[in-house]
Design a protein around this nucleic acid. Sequence first.
DNA 1: GATGAATGAGGTTTCATTCAT
DNA 2: AATGAATGAAACCTCATTCAT
Lengths: 209, 209, 209, 209
Amino acid sequence: MPKDTFFNLPDEKRQRVIEAAIDEFAKRSFHDARVTAIAEKAGIPVGSFYQYFEDKKDLFKYIIKLIADEKIAYINQDMIANMQRYGFFQLLRETYASGFRFAKERPQLVAIGLSLWNDKALSHEVYGDYIETSVGFFQRIIAKGIADGELDPSIDPAFVARLLTALTYALADFIYDDGKLDLDDMEIVDKMLRIIENGIKNRTAAIGG
Amino acid sequence: MPKDTFFNLPDEKRQRVIEAAIDEFAKRSFHDARVTAIAEKAGIPVGSFYQYFEDKKDLFKYIIKLIADEKIAYINQDMIANMQRYGFFQLLRETYASGFRFAKERPQLVAIGLSLWNDKALSHEVYGDYIETSVGFFQRIIAKGIADGELDPSIDPAFVARLLTALTYALADFIYDDGKLDLDDMEIVDKMLRIIENGIKNRTAAIGG
Amino acid sequence: MPKDTFFNLPDEKRQRVIEAAIDEFAKRSFHDARVTAIAEKAGIPVGSFYQYFEDKKDLFKYIIKLIADEKIAYINQDMIANMQRYGFFQLLRETYASGFRFAKERPQLVAIGLSLWNDKALSHEVYGDYIETSVGFFQRIIAKGIADGELDPSIDPAFVARLLTALTYALADFIYDDGKLDLDDMEIVDKMLRIIENGIKNRTAAIGG
Amino acid sequence: MPKDTFFNLPDEKRQRVIEAAIDEFAKRSFHDARVTAIAEKAGIPVGSFYQYFEDKKDLFKYIIKLIADEKIAYINQDMIANMQRYGFFQLLRETYASGFRFAKERPQLVAIGLSLWNDKALSHEVYGDYIETSVGFFQRIIAKGIADGELDPSIDPAFVARLLTALTYALADFIYDDGKLDLDDMEIVDKMLRIIENGIKNRTAAIGG
DNA sequence: GATGAATGAGGTTTCATTCAT
DNA sequence: AATGAATGAAACCTCATTCAT
């Protein structure tokens, strides 16, 4: 965690540091990112950097936390709050749609997330909880989906939760890459969802219903 | 490409170098990997390293090529050779099964592949064709699947091909990420396949049939 | 150009770095000169070297500039300022005398100049203007000498200018090459001048006068 | 001196090595020249290089000797042999003319000579005698010129000898540089000579004669 | 004697972090 | 608390020379 000095900074300056960090980490891996470059972009002396943060990793962890927080902000909070009112596929669609919006509007944050996603050593140290959060969320809505008869009860919730998490990243990839795929905003989400829906929905219930 | 000196090395030594490189690249990204560490692990002087390879990237590209080659070896060659004889889902199953076997047996290679997969800059320079090969393969079998009436003709082949490619990596991830999921060998592949199958198969044809 | 950090250094330290550099470059060509040796002589860490200079060439160019500046300081400024008042041979004498004084007092700087003078590739990159300045100066005073009737009008100004420049370096060589020749301070200059004077002065004018 | 193995080589191969060395040393200073590059150009293994020469310097010294020998070959041997029959200015003209021919036809050799000329440390180790030879030759013909009444007896033979040597190098420079000066073959030599002649010839004798 | 791989010292440069003001 | 210079441990790569066949 950053030191108090950092949080006591005037908002404007603190923001500048954050943006500089995002800029640098989006462009270069954690190891390649340069403290000097961040300080320079932020317009602060390197010395100050170490007055604000323990070290480079301290800042990095903080940025990751910010990303996680910001990502959550993209989710329809009302829907999450009243989760029990909505059906599984509605929740899923909303989740992916929020992931899509996030990736579209904050590609840099996605880039950072992706680069971390495959640095297992760093991930385990820095990321751990966030993944579990994500998988855990999917697991909860899957359990609910099965209980409600929406989902095929023979699916393995743990497995499908992980699959859905992986697809979140795949989705990010589609947007981030460089637009080889030319799809309208939500169309891509819908295509993916339709496939998943057909893949896991409760067919007997549907027939019976 | 490595220099002749490398290929003229006694098998045992050459293998040691390759393994040392795989070890290092599996643990650290291309940029973070250290030539000295590789040389040390392989038990050769740094000087020799540069007698064998142009530079670090030369070795890296070679390792990537080895991985691609080895991965291909995991595929049921007979099935690929006689592609037209097999149905889409059979081909898909075989493909994922081979990916699974590969990931299970050579997790380090998967780690390297994954780390490259998310370094877009490096990918484009080093990897290029490999990804296209993979996406292209899926696209071909999808086209065939539609033509044969196996697949829902309303799906977007380009999109689904990319999705299936992404799932290959997701699959790798499942295995790589230290076995939190404890499934019998092929069970995981089958689960994924069943979902996909339901997701994209031609339902009207099925009804009609 | 060196970075600000260098110019902000306490005089004493900055001077130490400059002297260390002169020492090294006088002894070894640009390519052979070692950054580490300079840092060590100056009593600074290598890291600091790169805080002060972009790279080795940055320092080298700076040293060359210092030499050019210092050399100019040896010239009788008053005479140059009022060039039109003086005759060709007076100007020439003064120029060579200043070159002589410079070479006598700063043999190391001459060594550096000479080593650059014969590395044409580096010269063109680093030195360019300095040589042109020198040749250009001679060309101007020669033109004036001819116009004033002092010089044989049949001489080729461009050629003689280059010859006189070359002789500047030859003169430097006399002094630099460890005093095998033991002459009183200005005697050597006068000897050379007498030869040149006889060689290019306007004889017909002399007769006519 | 190269080892016997070198001199026992078939002429054609020995020549290839020499030419490769000249090529490399003309392009790069002694320190920068690479043994590997020479071996490669010559089409011999590096191992052989060390079978032929003690080390890089051994080869370099040998090349310098070859250059000196070849330069001498450009001199009108008959004139040298019968030195006493010719006048000073004839001898001087012939010497410069030969220097000019040499520089024109073997610019690479001149480049090597020049690069050595200003590496004083190396010069003293490698070159020493050759310079003395050159200066000594001029000193002898100057002494003769004075004795014969051709030259102003008040000139300092040692000084003028060195000046004439320096001019040899200056001359080489004119040709080597890059033809900024566009003069017909011998014209440049004649211009220089005319200046020197006027500069040092015995005027009283001329008047008296 | 010929070959070409092996060796490792040494060169330049970068950069996270500490220090002194 | 702010500043920005100081520091030195690596990192990559080159190349003269030696060694083993």
